[in-house]
Amino acid sequence: MIRRNPWMALLWVIGCVLVLGTAGMQTWTAWFYFQTDLAVVGDPVLTTLAQIAGALALPAALVGIATVAGLLFLHAKRRARPTARPAKQAPSR
């Protein structure tokens, strides 16, 4: 039986957080800019957070999707390994 790889579990968490976090950040940013009158100086903290979210959204989505894709490759390699690898042979002398 193949043991669970803790680093792959961590990667799944990172990938899901990046993708779902991007969706959440974009939703909040869109709502924030929709509600805020840009002609009026608003809360500087919220404005800065909105800018950070806007800067992180595209890279986070990109890396999150790439992480999930890489994990699928890793799982495929892991599943194919028991049959694809030839049996070990005793060293001949």
Binding site: N5, W7, L11, A55, L56, P59, V63, A66, L74
Partner: peptide
């Protein structure tokens, strides 16, 4: 944007390396 992308990808790549080493 590319800086953030490459930085995140590098961090994730390090975790991938650990997974492969494991």
């Amino acid at each position: 944007s590319p800086m953030i992308t490459v930085g995140l990808a590098t961090g994730v790549g390090l975790v991938f390396r650990r997974a492969i080493v494991w």
